[in-house]
């Protein structure tokens, strides 16, 4: 059980990293961190981005649930 969940969690983590990296990066780095100019990004999100968002949210939910359940299992077991 623990082994299986761990593997699922790891796969989810890798997927999550990949999905986030697939998103187009918004925000121009450090210069507009902490009070830079106003960067207005015109144009709505494309279909690809919207599907990516959906996938990321689903993966993220599975990831969180797995993490919590696994944590409970390990703590109960020990």
């Amino acid at each position: 059980m623990v082994l299986g969940l761990s593997i699922v969690l790891m796969i989810c983590s890798v997927l999550l990293v990949l999905l986030v990296l697939l998103h187009k990066g918004k925000g121009g780095g450090l210069s507009d961190l902490f009070g830079g100019g106003v960067t207005s990004s015109l144009g709505g999100s494309s279909v690809v981005e919207r599907n990516l968002d959906r996938l990321t949210i689903i993966t993220g939910l599975i990831w969180v649930v797995c993490a919590v359940v696994l944590g409970l299992l390990i703590n109960r077991g020990a």
Binding site: L9, M10, C12, S13, V14, L16, V17, V20, L21, H23, G25, K26, G27, T39, S41, S45, T56, G60, W63, A67
Partner: peptide, 19 residues
Amino acid sequence: FVMTAGTCVIMWFGELITE
């Protein structure tokens, strides 16, 4: 793995708020 993925999620959150 979980912590690395967590950082990525935070990064995504930041971008979502900006957007």
